[in-house]
Design a binder for these strands. Structure first.
Length: 932
RNA sequence: GCGGGGAUUGCCAAGCUUGGUCAAAGGCGCUGGGUUUAGGUCCCAGUACAUACUGUUUCGCAGGUUCGAAUCCUGCUCCCCGCACCA
């Protein structure tokens, strides 16, 4: 059959579309399955990362559909965001036009892959019908106090001309443009994601996310238990210094207190003293420094004495107050108690400034409490030098100190979070306008619900200067909803991560114009059963979405606790790129063949993430054009496990294309079978049941690579074997194809439809529910076992033949097979059943002694055989092998009934098989073989 | 520094959770045979070393547990990825 995927694939896509088989509605009578991929940002072209992501999701969706689930599988676009706005600034035009143009072209490419989306549910974040609900929810958050405005130091990216959330600052740089982030004081809108810290953490236990993602989220949430402790100030009875520590057990070792240089008390403490100038210098240095510089410069601990003393809350003793550059103003209370003996940073600091070091924890009882220390001991220990608490250990030690503090009202046990409120303001145009009007009289006033959405205006100039929204008088100048006096509209827009924080629920009821979604529908579909996307969203999108879902639940809008039940992070798509070993740098493909531009050394090749900058990208469109979508899909699924990095390889793609071509011819071959039933039929049928059972099991665990291996590779081998064994049953062949085509469609749906058509299917395969070939019966298993035994014998005989040829003058004519002696078989059966009954194999020699054949001079031989060969085999034999033995496999019978086949395979004239006599080399399941 | 994940036979990559179906799947590559007008596809076989009877050395390195370890334990080396003066 001629295979022209560029023609046939779009035809099937059109038919699917016309039959509307992928559009779903709520249906309580069926089990639901919600399959979702992270919706893409509409850049102009589809790249291999997209193709991989969606090939995985589509295989799952199609599988679940075939298994009778009501599958929701939508697609949409994360279409707000800076690239479009930046393009508008650079090239002119409007972000909306650019975005929609891009969406059109990427949609077309996605459709060419034949993914089974319900396009009726298409969603775009930049549509007012979507973002009005961002505004609506924002208002509800505001009412609940979950959203608020605050004047605070925030992260500012100069290049992007906007503020950023904490999660969007990576190593002091902007996550998007990688330029430096500075601190700036601004009034901004925040969401109290921190209210959900505990639940975000504990919820991780009830969802199936990869370990590394869970660990990333735990790190990010950063819960640490400890105590807040108040130190008095000697000269200021009304003030106190609150510090946070995770180690209250070291409190007696606190020999000083360190404040962040920006701490509000610093100035008060030094005012007018001769310490003031030094402090100012330190503070200015720290404030000036961006986080990025900090990382480099702050290897060195630096501080100034502030000239004042704090009062230790338990001992009442005076300890000096310092300001230190390593204390972060925004974490904890911005002040720490310094315990040099048990904290490495404090230790270095104390050494440098000659502050006393006092050991208060002992790692072991015999340690000298007064000995000089060279390094801080940071583990748990037994308290010493701690007054009445001496001798208390570890967690108890923490507890008793906290109790003591609480009874004296000098502190309390608390929990600190690294998680900060989510800063959602952005000083950019292409996002959801924050629905607020600022009135001089009334302050910030929410836009009334009936006036939503607040739409983005079109009279904007994209100059690249300032927030574009400020250039629109029609947008900015409004009257106050409360007092009707002239007021000014908020020009901040929302972080685009807001859009992606709930789009998955919106899909459940995407066309609803009266509410963000209908609760019944949301509750039917949520949560997402299978979510697939890149690891890069592990701590932004995936945390925000979890928070938002919980917040919507608490507003009574839905019941879902968690948005995503199972998360699969697909690996990168890599391709070779030039690599310089001595410079340890990956280079653009244009350097291929020339020396390293830096060291002039020779370049080798290394696998690297496909990227524009390296130029090692492969165009999906080109590959689809050359090989068809099914080949690309098969290759992508087969080249690596979904979670592993995958190396693009042209030869691999071609190999998979050959595989497709082979499959294309299968129906013709099999439908050409003209024979009737034969003894091997039972085997093939059994084998098909076995293959299906394993296939569905691995599909359920999303091991798509293994699934494809079975459906697209191993079944072909089975058919080859069936034909070798003389099978050609026409009826069975048709049955087999009918089963098989369902398994093919998960990865290669177009090919499967081709098959279905050839089989005379009048409907679309994709619309059918697949019941499977049935369960594996005992007889089925037996058929498989017998054939497996034959295969063992054949392989063994073939190997022996090669060796025999070295010793024979002419090609061998006769093959003489001897199956094992009765006594060895008996020994094997006894050994296996002894082991299966849980007997201690070391004691099996007792059993041997009772055997009639182990008496007299045979005894030594039997014991030796047992120890050396039989014992290992008793454990080595698979369950299948063991069953063969225990069920009384007739070795000679199986061989003799296939003698003709063996003779033909091994190219000999005759095959004789008999059971061996007293002493031979034959062994159970391993007959001896002799060529003549 | 903290946390997470790795290191498998020419390459890619299974298996290791529940030690024995492991000389270790599958793909690629390579070799030989068949098919074919030829190339290609396809089919069969081989691909650690040895060997007409089943042996030797292998799963990052070094030990240990066991009748038995790629799989469990201990230590070490190297690689990747997050977070990072977070108190």
């Amino acid at each position: 059959m001629e295979f022209q995927p560029t023609i046939s694939e779009p035809q099937w896509q059109q038919q699917w579309n016309e039959a509307k088989i992928f559009s779903t509605e709520m249906d309580e009578s069926k089990p639901k399955f919600y399959c979702l991929e992270m919706y893409p940002y509409p850049s102009g072209r589809m790249h291999m990362g997209h193709v991989r992501n969606y090939s995985i999701g589509d295989a799952v969706a199609r599988y679940k559909r075939a298994m009778g689930f009501n599958v929701l599988y939508p697609m949409g676009f994360d279409s707000f965001g800076m690239p479009a706005e930046n393009a508008a600034i650079a090239e002119g035009g409007h972000p909306r036009d650019i975005t929609e143009r891009n969406m059109t072209s990427i949609t077309e490419q996605i459709k060419r892959m034949g993914f089974s989306y319900d396009w009726n549910r298409m969603l775009k974040s930049h549509g007012p019908e979507y973002y009005r609900w961002n505004q609506w929810v924002f208002k509800r958050f505001l009412e609940k106090g979950l959203a608020y405005r605050e004047h605070a130091p925030v992260n500012w990216c100069t290049d992007c001309a906007t503020v950023l959330a904490n999660e969007q600052v990576k190593n002091g740089r902007c996550w998007r443009c990688r330029s430096e982030v500075t601190q700036k004081d601004m009034s901004q809108w925040f969401l109290r994601i921190t209210d959900y810290g505990d639940e975000l953490l504990s919820g991780l236990e009830e969802i199936d996310f990869p370990l590394n993602v869970k660990s990333l989220q735990q790190d990010w949430i950063g819960r640490s238990e400890g105590a807040e402790i108040s130190f008095g100030i000697d000269s200021m009875p009304d003030e106190e210094i609150k510090v946070f520590t995770t180690r209250p057990d070291t409190l007696y070792g606190a020999t000083f207190v360190t404040l962040a240089p920006e701490h509000r008390l610093c100035e008060k403490l030094v005012k007018g003293s001769h310490y003031e100038a030094d402090w100012k210098e330190l503070r200015d240095e720290v404030v000036r420094m961006s986080d990025f510089d900090r990382e480099k410069v702050l290897k060195e601990k630096k501080g100034v004495f502030l000239g004042q003393y704090a009062i230790h809350p338990l001992t009442g003793k005076q300890v000096p107050i310092w300001a230190g550059n390593f204390v972060i103003a925004s974490y904890g209370t911005g002040a720490v108690m310094a315990v040099p003996a048990h904290d490495q940073r404090d230790f270095e600091f104390a050494n440098r400034y000659d502050i006393p070091i006092k050991k208060v924890l002992l790692a072991s009882i015999d340690e000298d409490a007064e000995a000089e220390i060279k390094k801080a001991y940071t583990g748990l220990g037994t308290m010493v030098n701690s007054g009445e608490f001496d001798g208390t250990f570890g967690e108890d030690a923490k507890r008793v100190i906290i109790d003591a503090l609480e009874s004296k009202k000098k502190g309390k046990g608390t929990i600190q979070w690294k998680l900060r409120p989510w800063l959602i303001s952005r000083q950019r145009y292409w996002g959801t306008p924050i629905p607020i009007i600022h009135c001089d009289e009334c302050g910030p006033v929410p836009v009334p619900d009936e006036q939503l959405p607040v739409e983005l205006p079109d009279d904007i100039s994209f100059s690249g200067q300032g927030n574009p929204l400020e250039s629109s008088p029609t947008f900015c100048n409004v009257n106050c909803p409360t007092c009707d006096k002239p007021a000014r509209r908020e020009t901040d827009t929302m972080d685009t991560f807001v859009d992606s924080s709930w789009y998955f629920i919106r899909y459940s009821d995407v066309q609803n114009n009266l509410a963000l979604f209908d609760k019944k529908k949301a509750d039917y579909w949520m949560n997402v059963d299978f979510y697939c996307g890149g690891i890069e969203h592990a701590q932004m999108h995936l945390i925000y979405a979890r928070f938002w879902t919980k917040a919507l639940r608490d507003l009574g809008l839905s019941s879902a606790n968690e948005p995503f039940q199972t998360l699969l992070c697909q690996g990168m798509v890599n391709a070779p790129a030039p690599w310089c070993d001595s410079c340890a740098v990956t280079l653009n493909v244009k350097h291929r063949g020339s020396p390293c531009p830096q060291c002039q050394g020779e370049l080798s090749e290394r696998s690297a993430k496909m990227s524009k900058s390296l130029g090692n990208t492969v165009s999906p469109e080109e590959m689809i054009e050359r090989f068809g979508a099914d080949t690309v899909r098969l290759f992508i699924l087969f080249a690596a496990q979904p979670t592993a990095g995958m190396d693009w390889s042209d030869s691999g793609l071609q190999a998979n294309h050959r595989q497709i071509l082979q499959l294309v011819d299968m129906p013709e071959t099999i439908l050409g079978w003209s024979g009737s039933s034969s003894s091997i039929d039972a085997w093939l049928k059994a084998r098909m049941k076995q293959r299906f059972a394993e296939w569905s099991q691995v599909m359920d665990s999303y091991d798509l690579r293994r699934a494809v291996e079975i459906s697209h590779f191993e079944i072909i081998k089975d058919i080859n074997w069936y034909q070798r064994r003389g099978g050609s049953n026409a009826e069975l062949g048709r049955w087999l194809l009918e089963q098989w085509t369902h398994m093919l469609q998960a990865a290669t749906p177009h090919l499967a439809e081709d098959w279905w058509q050839q089989l005379g299917g009048s409907d679309l395969l994709a619309s059918r529910v697949f019941k499977g070939p049935g369960l594996l019966s005992a007889e089925d298993q037996r058929a498989i076992d017998d054939e497996m035994y034959l295969r063992i014998v054949l392989d063994e005989a073939r190997e022996r033949k090669q060796l025999a040829m070295r010793h024979l003058e002419v090609a061998p004519k006769n093959l003489i097979i001897q199956t094992t002696e009765a006594w060895k078989m008996d020994l094997a059966i006894s050994g296996v059943s002894f082991q299966l009954d849980g007997g201690d194999v070391k004691k099996f020699s007792k059993v041997i002694e009772t055997k009639p054949y182990a008496q007299g001079e045979m005894r030594g031989e039997v014991i030796k055989l047992w120890r050396k060969r039989m014992l290992p085999m008793v454990f080595k034999w698979s369950d299948i092998h063991k069953a063969l033995l225990l069920n009384g496999l007739d070795e000679s019978g199986v061989i003799n009934s296939a003698a003709g086949f063996l003779a033909a395979e091994l190219e000999v004239e005759s095959v004789e098989c008999s059971q061996a006599g007293e002493s031979s080399a034959a062994f159970p399941l391993k007959p001896s073989v002799l060529y003549q």
